[in-house]
Computed example of a mutant assay.
Amino acid sequence: MNDERHLVGLIGSGIGTSMSPVLHEREADRQGLRYLYKIIDLEVLGLAAGDVGELLSHARQLGFRGLNITHPCKQEVVKYLDELAPEAAELGAVNTVVFRHGRAVGHNTDRYGFAQGLARALPAVAPGHVVLLGAGGAGLAVASALAAAGTRRLTVADLDLDRAQRLLRSITAHHDLTVEAITPEAAPDRLAAADGLVNATPIGMEGHPGVPIDLVHVRPELWVADVIYRPLETELIRAARQRGCRVADGGGMVVYQAAASFRLFTGRAGDEEAMYRDFLELAGGDRDA
């Protein structure tokens, strides 16, 4: 057993059923590390996204090695950090904060997580024209991953059109593709000629039931991906599968981003395949998620 101790955590809202603690702790056990992963739920604490800076300060004082950051704080947390790793600076969103030498450094492992998860679930998918629902922190990571995977046209739908336009400006600064920002009402029209659909909104997760788009617009020719993994089979993924679409649920993204975060926290590579098996066991499934 390694006597070095690792205290880490997760800040977000409505995260009581997150699988991150057990994914990290099981991997730490395999590697003989003393590792404790704590949930810091804004909803339970009666706090807002803007309180993330104070929580970071407390965590640093209490000796945390780092924190994962999730909805609704991935963009809000940026202004409270001392430094951003290149991928986080490019995206303007952070899902992992590491405390080192008195400094809080922001990273983004979501982009890697989504890219690896999509490649695993849909290895032969042609990204082509993709309609992305949601321009928040997860949407930024997804858009960047899609651009790197060869997407030629990206349509981003968000209730906040300014936010969607900011996402596209960020992406086009680093990638050459045709982009468009729209409101959700225009999404069905664009989806009619698209190759893929990705949900990067909270709609469909525990506490946010429903579907992010009318299912009548989900054609069998589409491939459909969701970043949500609680539940693993969202209403969108279930309906898409029933319609004959190729699908990628949020399982791959959460596992691969967790493995990348584990490495940032500990300096040791996480065993991605073992962590994936852990996830399937916890999720109660035996298929490739």
Rank of each mutant, 00 (worst) to 15 (best):
A143K: 01
A147W: 09
A121C: 08
A115C: 02
L132F: 10
R152E: 15
R166M: 13
G128L: 09
I171H: 07
R120D: 11
T172E: 15
V142M: 03
R152N: 07
R111V: 13
P127S: 01
G137W: 09
A148W: 03
P127D: 01
L161R: 15
D110N: 10
A135E: 11
Q116H: 11
D110L: 02
V130L: 02
L146A: 05
S144D: 15
G134R: 07
H174P: 00
V156S: 05
G117K: 00
D110K: 01
S144P: 04
A135D: 08
L154K: 04
D160V: 10
T155E: 10
R111H: 04
G134S: 06
P127Y: 13
I171A: 06
A157V: 12
A126Y: 12
G117V: 03
L167D: 07
R166L: 14
T155R: 04
R163F: 12
H174F: 07
A126V: 14
L159A: 11
A148F: 03
T172I: 13
T172V: 15
A147I: 08
I171V: 15
R169V: 12
A148M: 03
Q165E: 15
H129D: 09
L167F: 08
R163E: 08
L167R: 06
L159Y: 10
S144I: 00
L122V: 11
A145Q: 02
A119S: 11
R152G: 15
A126M: 06
L168D: 14
A173T: 11
T172W: 09
G117P: 06
S144T: 02
G136R: 02
A143H: 08
R120C: 01
D110Q: 02
L161A: 14
G134V: 07
V131I: 09
L122E: 02
A135P: 10
P127A: 09
Y112I: 15
D160H: 13
A147H: 07
L161P: 09
L161H: 14
L146Y: 04
G117R: 00
L133A: 05
L140W: 08
Y112M: 05
L140V: 07
D110A: 04
A141V: 05
A119N: 01
A126C: 11
G134T: 12
A145E: 05
S170K: 14
T172Q: 14
G139H: 07
A164L: 06
A145L: 05
L146K: 01
